[in-house]
Amino acid sequence: MEKKRGIPHFICEKLPALAIVLSVVIITVLLAAAELPVEGLLADNDALHNLYNVLVAIILLFVIKLWFTPNYKGSLKSSISLGEMIKILIPVVVYAVASEIVTIITGDFVFKPTLTKLCMALNAGFGEETMFRAAAIPIGLMYLKSEKKIAYTLIITSIVFGALHFVNVTGGGAPSVILMQVIATTFMGIYFAALFMISGSILIPIIVHAVWDYLCFVTDGSLENGVMTQDAVNAPLVVAVLFDVAIGIAAIIMIYRNKDRINQIWDEKWSK
């Protein structure tokens, strides 16, 4: 019996780098379009609005899987052991502890948890990981033909992730401060991509991303709806960005050390 091939993906096959970027654009548009029917209904309830976006992102995760069926096995199940999982989470745990210590020393520490901030963090985890990595990374690791496909996929997805945070300027952030945020998110994007590549599960970066953003939202007084609102770059911000750069470098090292494992995981996820 002839093997069922599924939907042909000409752009992925012929122009995989473009396909990676287009996957981000298309999913972003779909997430934005899904908000239109409920925009008026949920305008006064930020928590429900964010939870609705989480639901849409979850649906899109399954759509991505179905779109590449039967060749793609999906990305919900982890391909590594608990011990390996703990190892790749060490950098973000160290970063979180060190970051809070710095804020306590500088006197900038606050703790203001709210339901809305929790829902915002869940929305960031599910929404941004779905937009920037859930489709883009599998496409890159399948369709890029270069031996350096891991590096190219990492570079493209992380730069796009960071660059799109320039839009926060429209939310009232000072350009110099938003530039620092772009640098920070680019390197955090490298880490989130590393989590996905090494584990094979999109749920890992989703959870880590959501937890990380929640910690930022409730302990960083300069953040308002995820936008840095301070007027100028200061020493604590520079230190925070240096932490982000460090975690990105740690992620690059993790990817280099696990290159063969990554290729094996993604060869198993795609039936060629």
Rank of each mutant, 00 (worst) to 15 (best):
V182W: 00
L122Y: 12
L179Q: 07
A136T: 01
V92P: 08
L122T: 08
G173A: 07
F132E: 00
V167F: 11
C216E: 13
V160G: 00
G226I: 03
I155Y: 04
N225L: 14
P91T: 15
S201Y: 02
T157S: 02
W212A: 11
K112A: 05
T106S: 09
T157C: 05
S222H: 12
V169R: 08
V102H: 08
F109A: 07
N123Y: 14
T153N: 10
F196K: 00
Y191A: 01
T106P: 05
T103P: 02
L164K: 04
A194G: 08
T116K: 04
A174K: 11
F217E: 06
L203H: 09
F166L: 14
L164R: 04
F111H: 11
Y214P: 00
F126R: 06
H165Q: 01
I155A: 08
C119S: 11
Y214I: 05
S146D: 13
Y95R: 14
L122F: 15
I204A: 07
L154N: 06
G221Q: 08
I183H: 08
F109I: 06
A163W: 06
I202N: 01
V169P: 10
G172R: 08
G221P: 01
V211Q: 06
S199V: 02
V218M: 02
L203C: 13
M228K: 10
G189M: 08
L195T: 03
I101S: 10
P113Q: 07
V92Y: 14
V167C: 12
G200C: 04
Y214H: 10
A174I: 10
M188Q: 10
P113S: 09
F126D: 09
G221C: 05
C216K: 11
M188E: 11
I159G: 02
A124D: 11
V94I: 15
M228V: 13
S176M: 15
T186F: 14
D213C: 10
A163T: 07
G125C: 03
I204W: 10
E147L: 11
A193M: 03
P175I: 11
M131C: 03
A210G: 09
Y95K: 13
L154F: 10
S99F: 10
S176A: 15
I198F: 11
Q230Y: 08
S199T: 08
T103G: 06
L215W: 13
H165R: 02
L141W: 00
T170W: 15
T157F: 01
I137F: 03
G125M: 02
L115G: 13
I104Y: 09
V211M: 09
K145Q: 14
Y214L: 11
S199K: 05
T106H: 07
F161G: 02
D108T: 07
W212F: 14
M142N: 15
V92D: 12
A210T: 07
F132Y: 01
D108S: 09
N225R: 14
T157H: 01
T153A: 11
G162P: 00
V92R: 13
F111P: 05
N168G: 07
S176Q: 15
G173E: 02
A210Y: 05
I207D: 10
K112L: 05
I105R: 14
I139R: 00
Y152K: 14
V177I: 15
V177A: 13
G107H: 03
M188I: 12
V160Y: 00
Y95S: 12
A193K: 01
V211G: 06
V218E: 01
